[in-house]
Design a protein around this nucleic acid. Structure first.
Lengths: 194, 194
DNA sequence: ATCATTCCGGACCATTCAGTCTATAAAATG
DNA sequence: CATTTTATAGACTGAATGGTCCGGAATGAT
């Protein structure tokens, strides 16, 4: 009983990603959020709690969705090279979309918070580890399938690919030239060819 | 005539890099600066102007010094591969130094400011272009000297190396494991071997 | 000695901040 | 109708913000 929520809470969460991604965590004022989310102040506090609570909710929602997508790419592709290539092309594809790219930048607001918010730090660290592990296992499978040379140091390569994927988002923040992004992906992927 | 300045203005500028790098531009309060720089409030305003003025001064000082060093490495090494390798190893070396690494992170506070401060945006963009150009010319020289394969697309490769160098700083912000940094450099440099 | 400059601490300013509270209206359920 | 939940707008708070101004002391050059 009682009145129903009138706004889609996860849709508002996506808007929050954009706001935090644009202004950064410290640079985001409550007014920015109210304008960006299109809800009243009290609704924000009732639904999400404090500004920090909202930030963490938005961040977790973004990161887990992204990581799940990456992992699905890697684990559900028969060809390991196709899986890894798919991850990077998918990432670049989103970053080239004028609308969808905006929310991605919340991850960099989160990186900025690492030294000042242990919950953010632990969450990010755990997710990075989780992803690196999947990259590693995928590469191992690639070696056994003969797609990846046995000369490769898989641990270092997994780590590199993992960070390179994040760097791609950073790169998109500086330039919006799609060709730059594509070239970056191409050269990054050439590290598989040793 | 008159009393002399009692603090080394460029040394204080380096401290400002650290403060801004740690808290971010928005996250840095005047109190943080006063504590970090060790000078009185009025001295700060007399010497550097507003908080934003100080930020831009610190940023420009950092970026130009760094870029000049990179360019010097690239232009003054007979072997092109040694020059490029030198740039990355030097970068990693600084990022592994507990003290010297701190001031490097001002560059990411600057990236965050790009959408909100045109002067910062223009300065960063210009510096990125300048560096990419030197990378490109160096690679051209490398091809003519037979150090770089003629199959390489030099423009894309220059762009990649330029951004990869910046990503290295980002990487250092997330992890302080020196091995991760070294592996990252190693794999990045392997892109020269196509 | 005079004057200019820098130093410092603290007072002071208007503004903005995140967050709370109140009041009232609108739905949905019983 | 009564109850419960949500929605909105606006007033409000205490604290912190960046920035300015003042007063007095120290230092250096003429």
């Amino acid at each position: 009983m009682g009145r129903n929520k009138e706004f889609d809470t996860t849709l508002v969460l996506h808007k929050a990603m954009e706001v935090f991604g644009y202004y950064g965590y410290e640079g985001t004022s409550l007014q920015h959020l109210l304008d960006g989310l299109g809800i009243a102040r009290q609704s924000l506090y009732d639904t999400y709690g404090t500004k920090r609570d909202l930030f963490i909710s938005a961040l977790k929602h973004y990161v887990t969705a992204k990581s799940d997508s990456v992992i699905s790419y890697l684990e559900n592709s028969d060809s390991v090279r196709q899986g890894i290539t798919g991850v990077f092309h998918e990432g670049a594809f989103i970053l080239k979309d004028e609308n969808r790219r905006k929310e991605c930048f919340i991850i960099y607001s989160a990186f900025d918070r690492i030294p000042h918010d242990t919950e953010v730090a632990e969450f990010i660290t755990k997710d990075l580890k989780r992803l690196e592990e999947v990259f590693y296992e995928t590469l191992v499978r690639g070696q056994s399938q003969g797609e990846i040379s046995h000369r490769q140091e898989l641990r270092a390569l997994a780590c590199y690919l993992n960070y390179a994927r994040h760097s791609m988002t950073q790169l998109a923040k500086i330039t919006s030239d799609p060709k730059v992004l594509d070239d970056y992906v191409k050269i990054t992927l050439s590290s598989l060819d040793k």
